[in-house]
Design a protein around this nucleic acid. Structure first.
Lengths: 336, 336
DNA sequence: CGTTTGTGCGAAGTCGTTTTAGCTAACAAT
DNA sequence: ATTGTTAGCTAAAACGACTTCGCACAAACG
């Protein structure tokens, strides 16, 4: 495998000259045209490709970004990853992908791994309810940015959806169609993202003078299981909800599974809106209304922010990307 | 950021001693217990983490695997990626993720990038119909393995589903329920994977003494668009098919979209089976029968094969992982 | 003719790690 | 008193690239 040294030896010139030429600094280093062309030609011939590892060691910049997500098989994160890779590769950065598998311990270990691998920056969708193990990264001066989930009481910047507004809007859609008993099936309440989505729901009800009912706020994890069981429970109340708001795609899937298993019809038996869109939701019968997160944009913005910080511009601001309501057939208009 | 050199300096010992101790070679290098403990303690204190870039340069092994897929947002590849990451990280390998975006030019460029990054091995689901640009990798002695799509006329090993059998089985399920006019909507025919799935379909019909009808073999790409248009076309034939076999998940999605748009009912108007499973297909009304690929297993096997080759065991054999028929409600039993 | 200026390139250090090949001091054996 | 052994370390090279100096030679200038 050809190296600078090898080329230099073969052509009987010095390594520095070869290096300069291959970095396009021939002119400014006053290398003669003859030498330049001969080196370029020879490099082409032997198929020289620079050793980015050596370059990284020397420059202490690896052109590598660490990306850690809780579950790359979740289309929400997969879409985000696709866009992160896309925007990063445009700037010659490559992505080191880590799947933390919703496991905080894995997350802690892989944080160290990324530091060891000298990534230039880290983008992570954290899984836990604390961020102590990330402060290590910040101390090492490695740029870090959160996506999706975040911690407002840390100084680590984040790019996420406008969870409050998305939730607020979702509830408003239901309210606009006469629903007042709206069940919220949510994730772990220690999570700030959950808190904001919950607050959006609560404020939406309050602003419409609808009583916020504790028995309709259920669930404790972003899982199919939770959506499934919570739905079964809540539909058995004496006074069941007329609509369900599922706080993410996994919960939403659980709701759909439960409704199907109970042999009920959406939206006749119960209306539904899900936070997170998914292509298949438009094919269901009925098609399902959603709060669509702009995961493409989140990915793009995360890359731009991290590159900004890598380039020593520390003027990073956290962002909330607007969501979009996609109305389909799953919301019934109640008779007034 | 602490380095071996820094630790050595701080403790007034040599770099080599520190290196040995931190690599657990204290005993065999007859380092005194006192020195060992003091180094370990100090390293812990300053939070030393080895520079894997430097290590990689020295050892010319980066503990990195390049993974290139056509579309990480496609759940089939995302699931595969999840498992590849999982099995790789167990052996301390990290994944460099590349999304070729179904683009051969990107693929060519990124192949060079991976070589420059000195990955220890490359796993790729190729997008094109030729593999010339991959021979470069092989020449550089970088272990390479294909997943999903492949080229039987190259010596590059591959791990894929048993496409022929899966297709054969799918057609048999339809035939067993009385279908004889079965439409196959397929991908680009230059692709070997497509050829095998097609052959499975053809042989399945022939072995059941059913005429193979050219007008029922349509489509030319793995895309929603293709599934959508082909479905519309084929359902307008004078003698339309009673069943459709979609060759992958994107095509299948297009079929569902078309059927919905035409206001038709599955399986009354037409029966359907899709190559590739997806969680949501069980929630559709009716639920959709599929040929499930074991993408978890494919990912696992790909990692095991590439690690084998990295460890100089070149006895790699290509594999075809069995598929599984998942019968749901989308296939109608025709009256005989 | 001596000095300056410009041209074209090379030597060597550096990044952080591993590893080979020793080196020194202490002690035992002869 | 000399030699041998062993414990406990160190020095230095190497991996491949970049970069700071600076050197040699030629031409131009005064």
């Amino acid at each position: 495998m050809p190296t600078l040294k090898q080329i230099a030896k073969d052509l009987n010139i010095s390594v520095s000259t070869v290096s300069r030429i291959l970095n396009g600094k021939g002119k400014e280093s006053r290398i003669s045209d003859a030498t330049v062309t001969s080196v370029l030609k020879y490099a082409q011939e032997v198929g020289y490709s620079p050793n980015l590892i050596a370059k990284g060691l020397q420059a202490s910049q690896t052109f590598t970004i660490g990306l850690m997500v809780p579950d790359i098989a979740n289309p929400f994160f997969a879409t985000m990853a696709k866009n992160i890779e896309k925007w990063a590769s445009r700037e010659q950065y490559s992505i080191i992908l880590i799947d933390s598998d919703e496991n905080v311990e894995t997350e802690k270990i892989q944080v160290l791994n990324m530091i060891s691998r000298k990534v230039d920056g880290i983008i992570v969708a954290p899984v836990g309810d604390s961020f102590q193990h990330f402060t290590k990264i910040v101390k090492q001066k490695v740029p870090l940015i959160f996506i999706d989930r975040y911690f407002t009481n840390s100084t680590i910047p984040y790019i996420t959806s406008d969870n409050y507004q998305g939730s607020y809007d979702a509830a408003q859609e239901l309210i606009a169609r006469g629903h007042t008993r709206i069940c919220l099936i949510s994730g772990s309440s220690a999570n700030e993202l959950v808190q904001e989505r919950t607050q959006g729901y609560i404020d939406s009800l309050k602003n419409s003078d609808i009583e916020v009912c504790e028995e309709l706020m259920v669930g404790n994890s972003f899982s199919i299981q939770n959506g499934f069981e919570s739905t079964k429970n809540v539909l058995q109340l004496k006074n069941p909800p007329t609509a369900i708001f599922a706080m993410n795609n996994l919960i939403g899937f659980g709701v759909l599974k439960a409704v199907k298993e109970l042999g009920l019809k959406i939206p006749q038996a119960v209306s539904l809106i899900i936070f997170d869109n998914h292509p298949y939701l438009s094919l269901l019968n009925p098609s399902i209304s959603t709060v669509k997160q702009n995961s493409e944009k989140i990915g793009e913005m995360a890359v731009k922010a991290i590159l900004k910080e890598i380039n020593q511009d520390f003027d990073i601001t956290s962002m909330r990307i607007p969501t979009e309501i996609i109305l389909r057939e799953s919301i019934r208009k109640l008779p007034s």
